[in-house]
């Protein structure tokens, strides 16, 4: 069988399939369905300095081949994560990527310091959440703000720093370059695309928050194109995500330039979706007689 091992920002992964932040909690629920050690890694639910209750319901709306969410970073806070959730995840032989959102630049730095000390493998910096008023996407759409947050987290972290990019920008490559220039060890993309669904009977948006983030199969081509754009703009590794349901979806993302992939919305459809994706990648590699998954990264042949 083909070799699925990947080295990403200096960290060894047993396979290139992770779970996307916000779709997998802290792993406990899907851990009832399969051994989490099968995964390359888990990107945990977005953490904030203080606990958050999130947005009012409804927080979800289905769209054609996709969905909108407006959960709004409901989470127990970084301290409770370190106390109650990280030890659980550490029982598994898988990488743990902590996803953080700050209200201020210094809050990002404080969270990074705590999580780095607590022993997570990578810190994923969420500068792209579309569902919160303070912080989130307001940082991720301005290259100077992205650079500032990146520098602060980099200064406070002993583990690799990965910046999660928003697709809701004119030029994602410019944002990626800003992150790389400020010392980011990797980037992940894409976060959700802003969207809205209206109930034609009530004339009101379905989401109580009015707008939300679009994910699912509908966004895969957008994500593939943006990963390709970013691959041509930076040399740091890329975690590609957005609409991956199958091994072939993941191969597309890798060919576009991703070094690893994350599975998000597909978890909701199939609890074992990440394992289906991993096995699908292996099957593709075997069929094409490719020895290592690393050979795929950026191997798209443009017209």
């Amino acid at each position: 069988m083909a070799d699925l091992h990947v080295s990403f920002a200096g960290i060894a992964f047993k396979n290139p399939v992770l779970t996307a932040s916000g779709t997998f909690g802290f792993g406990r629920e899907y851990g009832e369905y399969y051994d989490l050690s099968e995964l390359g890694g888990v990107c945990v639910k977005g953490l904030t300095a203080a606990p958050r209750l999130g947005n009012p319901a409804p927080r979800i709306a289905e769209t054609a081949m996709g969905m909108l969410n407006s959960v709004g970073l409901q989470n127990p806070g970084v301290d409770e994560f370190i106390r109650a959730e990280l030890p659980f995840l550490r029982r598994y032989d898988t990488r743990v990527i902590a996803n953080i959102s700050g209200n201020t630049v210094s809050e990002y730095g404080e969270m990074a310091a705590k999580l780095s000390d607590a022993g997570v493998d990578i810190i994923e910096v969420n500068v792209s959440c579309p569902n919160v008023h303070a912080g989130g996407m307001q940082f991720g759409t301005d290259p100077r703000a992205v650079a500032e947050v990146t520098r602060e987290v980099r200064r406070n972290s002993r583990v690799p720093v990965m910046i999660k990019l928003s697709p809701n920008v004119t030029d994602i490559a410019e944002i990626a370059r800003a992150a790389e220039g400020a010392g980011a060890d990797a980037v992940s993309l894409i976060n959700t695309l802003l969207g809205m669904k209206i109930d034609v009977n009530t004339r009101k948006p379905v989401l109580a928050n009015n707008t939300g983030g679009l994910s699912g199969a509908a966004v895969l081509p957008v994500a593939v194109k943006m990963v390709w754009q970013v691959r041509n703009a930076v040399s740091i590794p890329i975690l590609g995500m957005g609409g991956i349901f199958t091994g072939e979806d993941a191969v597309e993302m890798l060919l576009a330039g991703a070094d690893m992939v994350a599975v998000g919305t597909a978890n909701f459809t199939y609890p074992d979706a990440p394992l289906r994706v991993r096995d699908g990648i292996a099957k593709y590699l075997d069929a094409k007689k490719i020895r290592s998954v690393t050979e795929l990264s950026g191997a798209v042949e443009m017209h």
Partner: peptide
């Protein structure tokens, strides 16, 4: 969303 407690959509 997920139905298994992970996504927090129905919280």
């Amino acid at each position: 969303g997920c139905g298994v407690g992970a996504c927090l959509v129905c919280a």
